Computed example of a mutant assay.
Amino acid sequence: MTFDSAVNEAVDFAIRGDFLEGFFREKRMKILDDIYTEFDQESYDETLRNDGRIEGIQIGARENAIANAKNFLRMNLGSPEQIAQGTGLPLEQILALKEELTREAVATTN
């Protein structure tokens, strides 16, 4: 069922059930407008990213994913693409972590 169909079906159900004594019947267009305005997937995804979630990973899990990625890179277990896929981190971040580990190794040997 599409989002539009689900919303319309829910509003129709509320109207048929006469919930809130006709409120839904009188306010149908306002309700639909509010629902569509309130939920915008792109805006929702952007909010998650801005709130500290990256690619669906919450902050605590993100720290674990970074630690795991570093371990995989140190042990040379998989390509950066595979590590990104396995940890859920963006490939760009895996490449940056790889570069960071390389710099740390060079600094340690000098």
Rank of each mutant, 00 (worst) to 15 (best):
I54W: 02
T47L: 14
K27T: 06
R25M: 08
E38Y: 08
A107K: 15
L77M: 07
N76G: 10
D12L: 12
T2W: 05
E100G: 04
G86Y: 04
V7F: 00
T108Y: 15
M1E: 07
F3W: 15
T108P: 01
V11F: 00
L95G: 03
T108R: 06
I57T: 05
E104I: 05
F39W: 08
D4L: 15
T47F: 05
Q82A: 09
A61M: 14
E100M: 12
L97I: 04
I66K: 01
A65P: 00
F24R: 02
R16W: 07
L20R: 06
E42Y: 14
L91R: 03
V11T: 02
A105P: 03
D40I: 10
E42W: 14
Q82W: 11
N8V: 06
R74M: 08
A96H: 09
R62F: 15
F39D: 04
R74C: 05
E26L: 12
I15G: 01
D12T: 07
A67D: 15
R25H: 07
A67C: 08
L89P: 00
L91Y: 03
T109G: 00
A10E: 09
V106D: 04
I94S: 02
D51C: 07
R103I: 09
E100W: 04
Q58N: 06
E9H: 09
R28W: 01
R53A: 13
A69P: 02
R25N: 14
Q41E: 13
L48M: 11
A84W: 02
L73D: 00
Q41Y: 10
L91Q: 02
E104A: 12
A67W: 13
G52L: 04
P90L: 12
G60V: 07
E55Y: 12
P90N: 10
A61K: 12
N68T: 08
K98S: 13
I94H: 03
E63Q: 11
Q82D: 08
T102D: 13
L97H: 01
E100N: 10
T102F: 05
L97G: 02
L101I: 00
T108K: 15
E46G: 10
E100F: 09
F39R: 06
I57L: 04
A105Y: 01
G22F: 03
A6M: 15
E38C: 11
V7P: 02
A65D: 02
D33H: 13
E92K: 13
E38K: 07
I59E: 09
I83V: 05
R103E: 13
L91H: 00
T2C: 11
A84L: 03
A105T: 03
R16P: 01
D12Q: 06
T87A: 08
R28V: 03
M75V: 07
N64P: 04
N64W: 06
L32K: 04
